[in-house]
Write a protein that binds this DNA or RNA. Structure first.
Lengths: 363, 363
DNA sequence: TTGTCAATAATAAACGTTTAGGATTCGATG
DNA sequence: CATCGAATCCTAAACGTTTATTATTGACAA
């Protein structure tokens, strides 16, 4: 046995056959007799043969893995997302490669470019990205004709040619905003991540509209996408700004965490001194005191949808190869699927951190 | 441009060179003049050449990716672990492939075997496993001479030939147990995951010893490794068993979550009605009320250590190319690094859920 | 007998790299 | 002038697969 495992040739030699015969036998293709096939399979099993997909993909011009682009995996949201993706991939035997863009905690465009280079070196079959990516990165992906699905962030300003599946953030903002309006809050503070994740714009603008409708003032505080930078930013704001919010809206999970540590240190009571609501659900939200009112997105579902779609895109691209086939002689209509733009509804979970006394309705 | 990207041949053709020259130029090796090298690099850049690592690995007999074996990614612990691994991998340009064993939430040996098959098909350079794996799986890895590092679970009964880096669970149990003893709890209930993750044994036996030392009764309730099965198991226990615990110890994070939902539904107050402590820290532990007393393991550090070590193992294996194995050591300095068995200390974080009134010391 | 067909098998090329072994130049040395 | 050495570049084989093409059978029909 070589250092690299048993090869087709090893089996062929053992049986005085050609690699051709062994390949056909193992892949259950025509061109080999029942007896030879049986013999091959027997030896293959004995020797513990495991095919080398890289060699296969190289020859066939296929690519079997999918890369997931993330940025700083501190957000538990990624877990559900990955689970959702894996739930689909496992069935199909696809592999998921994880690549994190934020090398030392901070995103930079050059880091993004470098990482993409890295990812492309592995010739993935497709890419799922949690970031919108830079213009040049997207251009590169276009040139490579790479199947791409953006999740939870729409790709830059030109959406048209890329697929994405996101939370319906407009609707989510609306739901949240309306509820705040019902509470008659007058000074909203939205603490939110930078616009690399451009779901930010939708969340922000939706909230601005809602505030305008009910005549509330709104301020936006931008921070990094992690709890520490959030805490620092919020501490700075509360210490030095005259704006005294009566409700804080956390743009996502790590940010909520940062806010809560800041408030806890200041002994500010939620919701009595200050109300607090958030975007994105998380497993502990229902066990905190007070329980957190938030709009819950379906990360797992988004992951699963994105996984299904990327596989469809990959299939489509690879089927459009030669028309050749011995396995499935059925000539399908071969309809081209365009990019999909799918939004998944988020649900408002009303609990106590907004000031509601009971699980439903405003105070 | 082919569908698969620019190749060395494309560049060679453009410049009327051989692929050889182009390869040498791009990899910055001798055998090519300054001027040709410059010309090659120019064209490569223009055309956006990106090497195909799979083809390279195939030729060189190397393997560039590392597979991480997980089982049901519901545990936020995985996030830190992955971050830790990535922090090392990014620098070295290694890729991390994630493979989850628990397809539909439940572990099974056949699923494990199938997944391992899958992983081996990609010819990873090494494997990091969060599970101890079955005897046959470990045997297979031995046959493949696969570099393996186990994290947080030691490999089966025979540890000798595999590396692992885990929390010092014996010490962790001791710390926790001693603290409980200080509280004079007399009826401990340990709720813990199955022994597929065999850190369980160490945690359990450490606690049993601590209980014995202080004359406390201890019961162990096994549940699945997720919050729902935990809640079900605990509900069943509390409803039907005569054993009335005065403290519950959660074996890990999802289990703690399950316990807390169960207690919340029963309106059992922590720590007044019942104390609660846990293994493994998580970001919200300090914001729950009461704050949770627990032993915190350094997942990020474990991930980083494991990553460093797997890379060292891979390097070692690949450097040992020319000299054939298991014969005489032909006088080379080539020192072989044996498997490492590293434990990382966990720290006890005393908070209020155990009944302590102040951040330090027992009540 | 010959010819045809189908089934089975082998040969060799291809995928995108790396690399051992030559070939060609040019200048310098004996 | 012949020989050497170094530098530059090429040819071709190799990695482990798949697959188009070709060769070898044997059976059966004419």
């Amino acid at each position: 046995m070589k250092h690299t495992g048993v090869t087709l040739k090893d089996i062929a030699d053992e049986l005085n056959l050609s690699v051709y015969a062994v390949s056909r036998a193992i892949n259950d293709l025509s061109g080999v007799s029942k007896t030879t096939r049986a013999a091959v399979l027997k030896v293959a099993k004995e020797k513990g043969y495991i095919p080398n997909v890289n060699a296969r993909d190289l020859r066939k011009g296929l690519h079997h893995s999918v890369s997931l682009l993330t940025a700083g995996m501190s957000n538990p949201y990624y877990l559900d997302l990955i689970s959702g993706i894996e739930s689909i991939f496992q069935i199909r035997g696809e592999n998921l490669l994880i690549s994190d863009i934020a090398i030392d905690g901070h995103y930079s465009e050059s880091a993004e470019s470098l990482l993409l280079q890295h990812v492309l070196e592995t010739r993935p079959g497709g890419i799922i990205s949690t970031l919108g990516l830079s213009d040049s990165s997207r251009q590169r992906l276009r040139e490579w004709k790479m199947p791409v699905v953006f999740v939870d962030s729409t790709p830059g300003s030109t959406h048209e040619d890329f697929s994405y599946v996101t939370t319906d953030n407009k609707d989510a903002s609306n739901k949240l905003g309306s509820h705040l309006a019902g509470h008659h809050f007058k000074r909203w503070l939205l603490v939110i991540y930078p616009s690399v994740w451009n779901s930010r714009y939708i969340r922000e603008s939706g909230l601005r509209q809602a505030a305008a409708r009910c005549g509330a003032a709104i301020r936006v505080l931008e921070c990094g996408n992690d709890q520490f930078s959030t805490r620092k930013a919020l501490d700075g704001f509360l210490d030095h700004d005259k704006f005294q919010p009566d409700v804080i809206i956390a743009g996502n999970n790590p940010i909520l965490l940062g806010i809560m540590t800041s408030l806890q240190a200041r002994a500010i009571e939620v919701p009595d001194d200050l109300a607090l609501v958030a975007f994105d659900d998380f497993i502990w939200s229902d066990l905190l005191k007070p329980r957190i009112t938030l709009v819950a997105e379906d990360s797992y579902g988004i992951g699963a949808k994105a996984a299904e779609h990327i596989l469809a895109l990959i299939d489509q691209k690879q089927d459009r190869k030669g028309g050749d086939d011995d396995s499935k002689p059925d000539g399908k209509p071969q309809m081209t699927m365009g990019p999909i733009h799918q939004t998944i509804e988020a649900s408002l979970k009303i609990r106590e951190s907004c000031g509601c006394r009971y699980p439903t309705g405003a105070a």
